[in-house]
Design a protein around this nucleic acid. Sequence first.
DNA 1: AAATAGAAGTGAAACATTTCACAAACAACT
DNA 2: AGTTGTTTGTGAAATGTTTCACTTCTATTT
Lengths: 328, 328
Amino acid sequence: MSKSTKQPTMKDVSRLAGVSLGTVSKVFNGIPVGDEYKSKVEAAAKALGYQVNVYARGLRASKTNTVAVILPNVINPFYSNMADYCCRRLNEKGYRMLLSTTSYDPDTEQACVDMVQQNKVDGIIAITYNPKLEVNEDIPFVIIDRKFHANIPCVSSDNYTGGQLAAEKLIEKGCKKLLFLGISSHVPGEADKRSVGFENYCNSQGVGCTIHRVWDEDGIDEIFSFVDDSTTKGKFKYDGIFCATDALAVQIIDRLNKLGVSVPKDVQIIGYDGIKIFGLDKYPCSTIEQPLEQMATTAVDILLSDKDSNHPALICLPVRYCEGGTTK
Amino acid sequence: MSKSTKQPTMKDVSRLAGVSLGTVSKVFNGIPVGDEYKSKVEAAAKALGYQVNVYARGLRASKTNTVAVILPNVINPFYSNMADYCCRRLNEKGYRMLLSTTSYDPDTEQACVDMVQQNKVDGIIAITYNPKLEVNEDIPFVIIDRKFHANIPCVSSDNYTGGQLAAEKLIEKGCKKLLFLGISSHVPGEADKRSVGFENYCNSQGVGCTIHRVWDEDGIDEIFSFVDDSTTKGKFKYDGIFCATDALAVQIIDRLNKLGVSVPKDVQIIGYDGIKIFGLDKYPCSTIEQPLEQMATTAVDILLSDKDSNHPALICLPVRYCEGGTTK
DNA sequence: AAATAGAAGTGAAACATTTCACAAACAACT
DNA sequence: AGTTGTTTGTGAAATGTTTCACTTCTATTT
């Protein structure tokens, strides 16, 4: 192990290849150069084991080959999957990933964005809920799940259709009294459209539906008491629930079981996300699955694509319904 | 939004503060400097919104304030928790985290280590299974769960005691015929001690135990067929199982249920890891919990501590037994 | 009071790259 | 053949830090 010799520099390469510094630089930046020169440089670089110094490059040019990914955390499977897929795609494209977690704290979010901006990363991918985030317009930025600013592309799943789909499935499976359960942040995001799609579809089919949404500061207890209040002697008022996330669905199922309400016999439940139980290759509940990998890949590709080739400001990727045992 | 002016440099700060460049540098590097100078510099820096340029610093010095974390992936909760806790601790200490995932591929692992070394990160934390990884001895390196080299500190949970504890609990709860199930990599790691502790404790108590371990290339199917073969008409040969990981335990439980064997009535199961089901604040099975946060924190602290203050080469952090409904 | 050691500030050099103005070579066109 | 235009290589300048050899200043000792 250990090969602790000093790294060769471009100067070493240029000397060995017998060409100028500028030519070596061109070769490594894909700028056209005569074939014989190019091969001389490549041979010399290989012989020396040369690799560009990221810091020197970062200092002089703006090219750092590093992209920052900013997420609330990386424990929640939705975020960690996102991080994983982003990392893979970035590495494929020759980029490194700088990961920051914010714990949903607006100050931390701003600090991350600032830090990352002044460190001249080549771009930022973020999931953030800070309504007044200050971002420098001339650094590539892609945001996930929230339309934040006209000029900043947003990648999300097709939340509206997902909501519709949930309603369609529950109705198809015989539900008559539907309920939506969700926890919202005060910052409007794309996920809000889930309940809208759900409600609209119910109305269009003449099926009654109740929307129960709480603010995140109230926490899940608020929802639990709603569920408790809707239950009398093991009978639940509704026969179909659409939960805004799988995590919520799992908790609701747990709560209902404790109340003696059986899923899916007494009430059918559909979640949203499509996260699999770890290890097992199955869903913890019936769900509307988001194309996580495609979302991450799309975010990276847009970020890294030419700034001028203007992209749609909002990219909704298709969702699909997945059976997970909590519907009939 | 958007404040797209050029970043101020140290020169700007020195000009505004009326001091030399060197003094400004000292202030930002914690090198002693007269109080009045210090406050002048700090005031000027604040007024200008100055922050050091990471790339210039990385070029000149070796200090980059960046640590690379190399993991197989960040989807498996064990790894993603690790990444999350490492990130938090690093940020607390003023460092950034560069995350790379390897998919267990030795070439990728080596490539990550190389890339990261020549980019002069300040240190590396890794979980890797590459037996002949080449690492440069003079870059701080901490490895998790595998004693890799005499000079490289390893952080792990106390696997041996964990194995003993699992045996103790199962025996205490009345099991007479014990079984260990595990998937091993060909590269010896700390996790191998789980079965050793388990077996030794069984022997010391005169309780019969079977160790069934397969190589990772055989995959879980090998274990499934062992389980199938040990079952006749809904009767399972053993009454207590210790699985090397929770992920495995969950799958075994699933399999046993399908065979008509009931957990924990017919057979009790203990896993290892202590990962919680997402969203829910409970364990998917009874388990030996690793102190994940403490492991991450310890790894970071050792990495960042003085190189000279020599640490123990192997740090085993304490585990504990957690009830998860798959034991009586 | 003089001498000296120690502490603290200074400014230029060094770090490894990219970029830019320029030179050289060559082709094409009158 | 002379002019023009295009392409391609060159080497110096520039990027924002840290470091280091000096200088200046203060305090201590005799």
